[in-house]
């Protein structure tokens, strides 16, 4: 019983990211409205961000800003304990990915508006019917 609980605690964050990813994937495949597809894509994206941030956390660590960093640097500076600070690398990757994500979201929305101007609808089946005619 204890083993099972320990197993769940050690993995549940990954499972949350996977389930959010599946919600986004299902929305991208099955929704008929193009704006819904884009929102599902954003949910998919943020699930991947959540997965990366989960990788970066450390037990008994603190935020990746070195305390008393104002006091300076140099040879007399004490050796920094790596286990005290969370892993900054996934944070960096995701920070840029979020801002790039909103820019690409803008491109997707612009394409949707253009489709709406041409076909007067953004429902996928109606667009396909329009194109066949």
């Amino acid at each position: 019983m204890d083993d099972l609980l320990l197993f769940i605690i050690s993995k549940y964050n990954y499972w949350v990211a996977i389930i959010l990813l599946l919600i986004g994937l299902y929305g991208m495949i099955s929704k008929n409205n193009l704006l819904k597809k884009v929102i599902s894509m954003a949910i998919f994206q943020s699930a991947i961000f959540l997965f990366y941030i989960s990788i970066g956390t450390k037990q008994h660590a603190t935020i990746p800003i070195i305390e008393h960093g104002h006091n300076g640097y140099g040879a007399d500076h004490a050796v920094i304990d790596v286990a005290n600070y969370a892993n900054p690398l996934p944070h960096v990757l995701m920070l840029t990915a979020i801002v790039v994500g909103v820019a690409t979201l803008g491109v997707a929305l612009a394409v949707i508006q253009k489709i709406n101007q041409v076909h007067d609808t953004i429902e996928e089946d109606e667009i396909l019917r329009n194109m066949e005619e």
């Binding site: 941030i53 956390t57 450390k58 990746p64 800003i65 996934p90």
Partner: peptide, 12 residues
């Protein structure tokens, strides 16, 4: 994300 120590990412 703030609870997971990623303050910069949460800010963004």
């Amino acid at each position: 994300w703030t609870a997971m120590l990623a303050v910069d990412v949460a800010f963004t």
